[in-house]
Design a protein around this nucleic acid. Structure first.
Length: 783
DNA sequence: CAGTGAGCGAGCTTCCGCTTGACTT
């Protein structure tokens, strides 16, 4: 039996550390927190110094009893949870729950999982830091009080099952406010001048731009007209060196951002894949806010860079974190072995690993060097000057392996391409020949909608949430129906282009799409409603600085300069009063708007949130005649829908004629416009307006779909024509009446028998699937 | 899958952070 029991938070970490220590040490994992507040309302005694009631949750019982057993027989128990607030609390909970003895327990910490770091930690044990534990308790209690007092207010005043919290409510607020900024935004148009020059016949072309834009077409046109007979020359030529430095190695949030931009991963997917890499021993811990690399890692990166690229590509760099709330209990995310440029695994693992490897390696490489050339070009007929810029890379440095991408944040000046184009050799005073010039109408852009990853970035900047909660928070606000991640179609917009070609100025009108969005976060009506309610009644809690200011107090508690119960008293008394006051005095939150009067009936038209979501209503409930209802469609919101858009909704569903003696109806559902015929659904092709589908078109669509369905069938079973194997979106599957059955991996399609189908169908109905289905329905349907 | 939209009103919902499975699509 080992003399020492060492407990860390993560089992993968335990495995690594066990290898560093001799047989005297048994290394085990607590799997994170082992205790939590009880789920009931008596978890915190707010009248009695916020005394908490903890319990070991069911799924932690096994871990706790095993650790208890091992602790009993160990001479010394080493508590090696992370060195931050939560980690300290985990150690304390272990101490209490396992019934450890003061003099047989040692608390140790390390920031990196390397042999020297672990050995050094073991030589420097300390006691549990109760100030830090108290800071965690204050954090935990505050979050529970906020969450479990605010949420019931929403149940009473808005709708059941909603939730509010210190983190999620601010995340929703950011999205709601961004949406409003975008709605308020008015695009300004201006004309951008671009000229194309060359230095002589047969010489290469290059671009130059006018630094400022013209507000009106007339001004732009005058500029082009003036340029017809003008002569152009290089007035000044400036060459200067420029440098670019690599970015710091990844933290959780920067990894999520970069994987989203470069690989198109959702933040949840990034974390899933990273977890697999971590468990396979490929990367260091993936939930971290630190950009720090261990000395061992810095050395290993140097070796690899020198070996693979040569001495001059290496530069030792140390990074400091910029985010205020960082607790830095771990290293930055990096490969465990820099010598492994790529790994085996599925495509997503390989790609994410490569990204992590490149970023970490690049962070220890030399800067890229450029020579930037700026040529000013004079125009004989005007006083303005055009600018041509070119960039030549003198030394690639870190760019040899890695280029960081940037968010497409709403750039007010519009597109800025051609920044690093090449310029031909030029001299000051040299005459230039104009090949072509254009004035293009460009529009200023509204602020960008958040993606999952850019929202994480914003939350991190505000110090809200932790690496372990970014992905779950993003999921929560979507699961509650406060926000949706969606694509939206844009609208066409005309823009004017003036071109000067061969001495003649021509005007054209072109069309571009504007407002196209992919995978962006949009607020829902319920999200807006809840947000506005919270902002009105609990301004302090949803304030963007609330977390930052309580964090400051948690820090004071951690340093021993503040009593945690005092802090909570000061927070809770006024907060609780506000909760009571709101429950008693606030009106039920509604978000109803009168849009106008229906010209056909003279009845009022209004929009509001109903039991099944936002709806338009013609007439009122107290009329003799029943009101008419219609659901809002994707992209429409109570706040912004117009009278005309609302009235459009009543034109569907619409009967378009008969086919095979059954009626055909066109309507719009959750997945777009469709035709319903004989209880079957047929999607309309894109671009076809559901309002003017003719009977002939509808029949055509139905026939086409049927043909395609026949082509999808691979096999039909003689025993039962309702059972067939079809080609689906993710490969073949079995359609069995109304059931869709998965074919087990590695099955030969031709060898499947009807008995197999019956067996799978049976498993499908009794397996976990059916229960899962019903619980899911229960949450969405809410009967 | 998609069309509805109330009724009677029991007993339920909910937070943030720290971890990994055991599930499905």
């Amino acid at each position: 039996m080992a003399k020492n029991l060492l407990i860390v938070e993560s089992p993968a970490k335990a495995k690594t550390i066990e290898g560093y220590l001799g047989s005297d040490f048994l290394v085990k994992s607590s799997y994170g927190h082992i205790r939590d507040l009880v789920k009931t309302d008596d978890a915190i005694d707010t009248d009695n110094k916020f005394k908490q009631k903890y319990e070991v949750p069911a799924d932690k019982k096994a871990v706790v009893s095993e650790l208890k057993k091992l602790a009993k027989v160990a001479e010394t128990v080493w508590l090696a949870s992370d060195e931050d607030r939560e980690g300290e609390a985990i150690s304390w909970h272990l101490f209490e729950t396992l019934g450890l003895k003061e003099d047989a327990t040692k608390r140790i910490v390390f920031h990196e999982i390397t042999k020297p770091a672990i050995l050094k930690a073991i030589e420097n044990p300390r006691k549990i830091d109760y100030n830090l534990v108290n800071a965690q308790q204050a954090r935990r209690v505050l979050d529970r009080l906020v969450g479990f007092e605010l949420s019931p207010v929403l149940w009473r005043k808005v709708k059941p099952s909603l939730s509010a919290g210190r983190v999620q409510s601010v995340a929703v607020r950011l999205i709601v406010e961004r949406e409003r900024e975008i709605n308020r935004f008015h695009a300004d148009a201006a004309f951008k001048i671009v000229a194309v020059f060359h230095t002589g016949k047969g010489k290469e072309l290059f671009k130059a731009e006018l630094p400022h834009r013209f507000d009106t077409k007339e001004e732009a046109k005058a500029f082009l007209n003036d340029s017809i007979n003008a002569s152009f020359a290089v007035s000044t030529l400036e060459k200067k060196p420029a440098k670019r430095n690599p970015a710091a190695p990844f933290t959780t949030s920067t990894l999520q951002q970069e994987a989203s931009r470069k690989l198109g991963f959702s933040v949840a997917r990034t974390m899933q894949v990273a977890q697999r890499l971590y468990e396979a021993g490929r990367i260091t811990y993936m939930r971290t806010d630190s950009v720090n690399l261990s000395d061992t890692a810095i050395k290993a990166a140097e070796n690899e860079i020198v070996k693979a690229y040569g001495e001059k590509y290496h530069k030792l760099r140390k990074y400091k974190t910029k985010s205020a709330g960082a607790q830095e209990a771990h290293e930055a995310i990096r490969p465990t072995y820099f010598s492994e440029h790529s790994i085996d695994g599925d495509a997503s693992e390989r790609r994410l690993y490569e990204l992590i490897w490149k970023r970490a390696i690049a962070s220890q490489m030399s800067e890229a060097e450029f020579e930037k050339t700026v040529a000013k070009i004079s125009i004989s007929t005007r006083k303005e000057e055009l600018t041509a810029t070119g960039e030549i890379m003198r030394f690639d440095g870190f760019l040899k392996v890695y280029m960081e991408s940037t968010d497409d944040e709403g750039d007010v000046t519009g597109d800025t391409e051609s920044d690093n184009a090449l310029l031909p050799p030029l001299e000051a005073g040299q005459a230039l020949i104009l090949n072509q010039m254009s004035a293009t109408e460009r529009f200023s852009r509204p602020p960008a909608r958040y993606t999952e990853a850019s929202l994480v970035k914003k939350l991190e900047e505000l110090g809200i949430g932790r690496p372990s909660t970014y992905a779950p928070t993003i999921s929560t606000i979507q699961n509650r129906g406060y926000v949706v991640k969606e694509d939206r179609d844009g609208k066409p917009r005309d823009y004017r282009v003036l071109t000067l070609d061969n001495g003649v100025v021509n005007e054209n009108i072109k069309t571009e799409m504007t407002g196209v969005e992919r995978n962006k976060m949009f607020p829902t009506d319920i999200g807006v409603l809840v947000n506005d309610f919270l902002v009105e009644h609990f301004k302090d809690i949803v304030d963007f600085n609330f977390t930052a200011s309580v964090e400051k107090e948690f820090d004071e508690i951690a340093h021993g300069s503040k009593e945690w119960t005092d802090m909570l008293e000061n927070f809770y008394r006024p907060f609780h009063h506000e909760v009571q006051d709101t429950l008693e005095n606030a009106d039920r939150a509604t978000h109803e708007r009168e849009l106008g009067v229906d010209p056909a009936t003279g009845k009022p038209v209004s929009v509001r949130v109903g039991r099944f979501g936002p709806l338009v209503q013609i007439g009122s409930a107290d009329d003799e005649e029943k009101p008419r209802f219609a659901s809002l469609r994707k992209g429409q919101m109570i706040e912004t829908i117009t009278f005309e858009e609302a009235m459009e909704l009543f034109k569907l569903p619409k009967k378009v004629g008969e086919f095979e003696e059954k009626e055909m109806t066109v309507a719009i559902g959750r997945f777009g416009p469709y035709i319903r015929h004989n209880s079957a659904f047929y999607s309309l092709p894109k671009g076809l307006d559901p309002l003017d589908v003719s009977q002939e078109q509808a029949i055509e669509i139905i026939k086409e779909k049927r043909q395609k369905d026949i082509e999808k069938v691979i096999r039909v079973f003689d025993e039962n024509p309702d059972a067939q194997i079809e080609n689906g979106r993710w490969g073949p599957f079995v359609r069995f009446g109304k059931q869709n059955l998965k074919i087990p991996k590695g099955t030969d399609i031709q060898a499947i028998t009807y008995a197999d189908v019956l067996k799978w169908a049976e498993e499908d109905t009794k397996g976990g699937k059916s229960t899962k289905k019903t619980t899911k329905r229960a949450t969405t349907k809410k009967k």
